[in-house]
């Protein structure tokens, strides 16, 4: 069969072919499902979805709403970091502070902040503040927690090295403290970024007046399944892009860290 040339192909090509094959299989399964059991509920086929995607991509409404969601998510993330990072560092620096806040942090990170949406909806109405507040309330926890871990991760040995060689305060911060903490802070940032996107779209979906979540709700309300699909996929792609940005950032900033060196960062 045609397997022989593939086997001798360079690994990169083989990998790409495999991935395309897997995608193709997924599309075929999707197509068959849409034609068969899904047809009664108006489940679009992959081709139909692509058509609506192309249609939508030509409209400015689509893009401006995406921009709105991304802006909200990034703004919220920024706020969460601005608030969470100093708090986390303060808590991490002091054992007593760590113990006293343990319960609150545990509580904060597990309580589904999305449930606060009805309250915030009353307070802020269908505005961007609604999304921002929701994001901050849910994304600030991983930032605080990871930042507080990070402080504990500066190895005492490295501290002693800094003292022994009389590094200046700035150099200690720049070459010892910041690099030791960064991997942990990064983990928190990534979790917070995922949450931010989810909460931005959720707030638009449940009580917004624009953004991707709002488009999604509208499409659902008028039973436009084809568009709803495109919006769902767009949301997933945004998530992927966000993740990718973080992987690339991590490679640049944490190139020396084992998780990056092994090439296993994903």
């Amino acid at each position: 069969m045609t397997r022989t040339p593939l086997r001798t192909a360079p690994p990169g090509v083989r990998r790409l072919v495999n991935r395309l094959l897997a995608l193709l299989v997924a599309f075929v399964v999707w197509h068959l499902f849409a034609r068969g059991p899904g047809s009664s509920s108006g489940f679009p086929t992959p081709l139909e979805s692509m058509e609506s995607a192309v249609d939508l991509a030509g409209t400015s409404v689509y893009w401006s709403n995406i921009a709105t969601s991304v802006e909200t998510a990034l703004l919220g993330l920024g706020l969460a970091v601005l608030i969470g990072l100093p708090i986390g560092l303060l808590i991490g620096a002091d054992e007593r502070a760590r113990r006293s806040t343990q319960l609150i942090l545990d509580f904060g990170r597990t309580v589904p902040a999305i449930a606060l949406l009805p309250l915030f909806l009353l307070m802020f109405g269908a505005t961007r503040s609604l999304g921002l507040v929701l994001i901050v309330v849910s994304a600030v926890w991983p930032v605080i927690i990871q930042a507080s871990y990070a402080v504990g991760e500066i190895s005492p040995q490295l501290r002693r090295v800094g003292q022994a060689y009389h590094l200046t305060r700035w150099h200690r911060l720049r070459y010892l403290i910041a690099p030791s903490m960064l991997p942990f802070v990064f983990v928190g940032l990534r979790i917070a970024a995922t949450i931010s996107l989810l909460m931005a779209i959720s707030s638009e979906f449940l009580g917004g007046s624009d953004g991707l979540g709002y488009l999604l709700l509208q499409a659902m309300q008028i039973n436009d399944t084809h568009r709803a699909f495109v919006y769902s996929f767009t949301a997933a792609l945004l998530g992927l892009v966000l993740n990718l940005v973080f992987v690339l950032l991590q490679r640049r900033v944490l190139w020396w860290h084992p998780s990056v060196r092994k090439g296993g960062a994903s």
Binding site: F43, L197, G213, L216, A228, F229, A235, L237, G239
Partner: peptide
């Protein structure tokens, strides 16, 4: 990467 809220329309459908 699919945010759970974006899943809702498909699941409800």
């Amino acid at each position: 990467a699919l945010p759970s809220v974006a899943l809702l329309p498909i699941m409800m459908l």
